[in-house]
């Protein structure tokens, strides 16, 4: 077996966490019992996991800074001056955060003042790109699915623009509009069921040792 120790450890912790869900949560610190024991183990493990997640974010930030540093020092076509801009902004923000602390309103406004327009602009580009892609879809792959996609987009644009309320006031259109509004719900439930089954399967595979993503 490949990495038996890691596999046994992963299975053991998985079972402990799973038992913590099935065992009743109430735990009286004055009268600790089995539930408190499992809860204590589970909390410790989750605390370790949270710490590791925080460290992983820190590692990601450092890695991002190093990548852009290499691009700044690179020669030729790989050299990117925008990376220098990124590093400069990163250092300024880091210094401001260390100096003013994240609780400072000015610091918070500065961060949001930069981050909010950037992300909103990206969302606007996404909307235009999706609209143009729907047109190209008819040109490239003009089939039944493409036509259905375009028709669905147009219909829901109209409904989401407030027309659904107007149509619901019309008796003849009320039920058809309700049916159309329930169409996304039906799809969403199907997606949720798929997600639930997938998560259950992945958990069982890890608990049974069939899937060992931690083994490298």
């Amino acid at each position: 077996m490949r990495a038996p120790f890691s596999t046994a450890l992963a299975i053991a912790f998985g079972l402990v966490v799973l038992l913590g869900y099935f065992i009743p949560a109430p735990c009286d610190p004055a009268n600790p019992g089995l539930s408190c024991t499992f809860l204590g183990i589970r909390v410790v493990l989750l605390d370790w996991g949270a710490t590791l997640a925080g460290v992983a974010m820190l590692v990601g930030i450092v890695n991002l800074a190093l990548v852009h540093w290499r691009k700044v020092r690179a020669s030729g076509k790989e050299r990117d001056l925008l990376s220098a801009v990124f590093l400069l902004a990163f250092l300024i923000t880091l210094a401001a955060g260390l100096w003013f602390t994240p609780a400072d309103v000015r610091f918070q406004r500065a961060v949001l003042g930069i981050q909010t327009p950037v992300e909103i602009s990206l969302m606007a580009l996404l909307v235009v790109t999706l609209a143009y892609a729907s047109l190209r879809l008819l040109q490239r792959r003009s089939g039944l699915m493409a036509v259905s996609f375009v028709i669905s987009a147009l219909v829901f644009l109209l409904l989401m623009s407030g027309l659904s309320g107007l149509f619901q006031q019309v008796p003849l259109l009320r039920e058809p509009v309700n049916v159309i509004n329930r169409l996304p719900l039906a799809g969403a439930r199907g997606i949720l069921l798929g997600i639930a089954l997938g998560s259950l399967t992945a958990g069982l595979r890890i608990l049974l040792g069939a899937d060992r993503p931690y083994s490298g």
Binding site: R42, V43, L46, G49, A50, T51, A53, T101, A103
Partner: peptide, 26 residues
Amino acid sequence: PGGTTSLQEFATFPRQAVFAGLGSVP
């Protein structure tokens, strides 16, 4: 800090999951 991973701990022991919040007094 652990994202959604910390929700279980936060739901069980909120004071252990969150220690130093974003203080209003710098």
